[in-house]
Design a protein around this nucleic acid. Sequence first.
DNA 1: CAGTGAGCGAGCTTCCGCTTGACTT
Length: 857
Amino acid sequence: MSKNLVIVESPAKAKTIEKYLGEGFTVRSSYGHVRDLPKKGLAIDVKDNFKPTYEVAPDKLALIGELSKLARQADIIWLATDDDREGEAISWHLKEALGLRESNIKRIVFREITKTAILKAVENPRKIDLDLVNAQQARRILDRLVGFELSPILWKKVQAGLSAGRVQSVAVRLVVDREREIENFKTTSAFVVKALFDLENNRVLEAELPRKIAIQGDAMQFLEKCKEAIFSIKNLEKKPAKRSPSPPFTTSTLQQQASVKLHFSVSQTMTLAQKLYEAGHISYMRTDSVNLSQEAISGAVNQITNEFGKEYVQTRQYKTKSESAQEAHEAIRPTNFAVREAGGDSGERRLYELIWKRAIASQMADAQLEKTVATVDISTTKEDLIATGEVIKFDGFLRVYTETSIDEDDEDVKGMLPPLQIGQILNLNNMSATERFTRPNARFTEATLVKQLEEMGIGRPSTYAPTISTIQKRGYILKDAKDGKQRQYQRLVLRNKQIKVETLTEIYGAEKAKLFPTNLAMVTNDFLVEHFGKIVDYSFTAKVEKEFDEIAHGKMKWEKMLQLFYGDFHKTVEDTVQHGERANSARVLGIDPKTSKEVTVRLGRYGALAQIGVANEETGETPQYANLLKGQFLETITLEEALDLFKLPREVGFYKEKPILASIGRYGAYLKYNEEFISLGKEHDPLLIDSETAIKLLSARDALGEFEGKSMSAGTGRFGAYIKHDGKFYSLPKGITINDLTNSKAIEIILAKRKTEAEKLIKEFSERPEIKILKGRWGAYIAVGKDAFKLPKEWKDNPEDLTLADCLKITGIGDKKTEPKTESKPTEKKAPAKKASTAKTAEKKTPAKKTTDKKKK
DNA sequence: CAGTGAGCGAGCTTCCGCTTGACTT
């Protein structure tokens, strides 16, 4: 029998494929790229036709050693890396790094991990496509040149340690541009007219004027006209409509829906998906394809038929809309549609459910709707009111999945209209004209930024999450919340033939988990736009991608492409280094009336600052500094706002003969008393808070007294009100404020939290009955079957704080160990059988602390 | 967590795209 070595990119894939190929085939994984440009230095000889110097990364040396040993023993080496540009390059690098001969390598590709696809691939081997490899090299080299020539300019002209690149700089630019768009947005308002009619049996009909009225006077006039009007149903129209499901998930749509439905960050989503993938529950999670394999589709059909019935089946083949998609994989889907629940923890389980629903829905019938439009005649005007309703006649895919819009403009859900007849006279309850305001585009969330990047063809499924982290890590972007502001609006109400004008207030513009640019981002972005407009242009990637495609199709030489790009680019780099001014962020705001000195703002080493006066060696004068607050921008801060910053820290008053200071730190406003910090939360302004309120806050803390020999304190932190005891934080339950706290109430809260935490642990541990925490002569240890594992120092005396995750880490038994030969089904069966033993484990777990206490006695 | 903000001027920082790592007692 001949010996075959197959190399794929991912170890999880290797396992599955080995099963399909059977004897004579050894399947190994390259774990992604095996060779690359070295981490440090340019490693590109620009003068010698951009000749790159590649190296095997230090942590890949052992792998390459093992693979070449296996390659020597094999007759044929099958290079089965992904069917895209990067995959082709990985095959080529493998060939080079392993020193393989052309004669015994075969390049095979498949876009789905199914037995048929793999076997078919093996029957149709080809050679490595060097044009495609060259396209990848051009991509790699261009990115290195851009990144490693631009970043050092930023170190010189803006700030050390910064970075720039084809992808990240555009991501930052999007956020900066959006912020300015919001800042410059001119809000306008108009009046929306709605009428509410009373019908029989306590039913109501709501109808709306199809146009908005710009001016309040006109709105008033309209209502005046309606005072004496007779309202009647002029027309009724019923129209069938349908709604179709979305395609199954790609990486970016998964990130978007997990963000809006489950509130996961993009990196959280990817970590959880990775776990599901490694456990064999879902197909590959880094993909830009919406395609499903035939086998997957028939799996879905079976499941839909069994669970919902034949009439719910409607298979579809989706096509990608994105030009940049390379579609080397399937869409994200469950590996087995019959498995309704999967995943180790609640996050994984919820993500799996989402993936299952979306994939299954994609093969389900359209929902059939009936839309009703009722036209309401107003006898005194030529205009009509419109009432619309919607009834679901057949739910179809809506039975399992409804897409949530990731934009905030949540359209109101339409219900059914009450029974109506043409000519029916309606009885007006009231008609209102309410002032509504236009809104600027919302700030990006992580997920909407990914969506935007994908639409522009910038970045790849494997880089969306890392890019989002990079721009935050570099200090360009902050993920933050913003409080809403209050504003007043007018409302005219016609009721009982009388019109009343009301002035109401609303909160608007509150945001959560949104991306805000920092001052650093604005300064850096403006610098890049000024000097390297072409590179940070939104269409730059699309432009170079076209050229990479030409290289891939053999229509252009990669060296030529780089030559054309680099000549121009490098000249600009040199020019900027020599003649470009340092990025100057300073702005003069005016004169401080107190000192008559100039007030300026600029970007300092640690962020944006305001400054009064300048350093003067002769007079020995030093300027005063103050940080700008979160959300204050160099380009928009006013003199008054800047001067306010210098009023802090400020002495608010005295408590027990010691001063209370109020100020603002990186994380918000706080009181400082006796070297201790008390967060003020959102309801108190450090500039305004009075002595009485501050003392009240302090004495509320004192009043808590002690518990278990340690004092308790309370405060309001970033995440709400809390009790602090023995270094731990306990958040207050809803409805209880700091002022309600007494000693016994606080103890009650602490005990309640301990109890729920213990219960959580018991639940976790009950799923792994083989893991127990026991007390030995020398302290606690973890027992797994007959094996014992020592605990690190910090746990030895309080093993009750150990979580299951800690145990798995310490013992090294990951989830992998439980499934060596089993498939997904047996694990499900096991669960109920375990229950008998769980109670005991649970008991052992909670009283662990008490056992220690007894022993001590 | 809660402040800092110059300067000796060494030696350092950085890209995008593939993939999963895991030092102890």
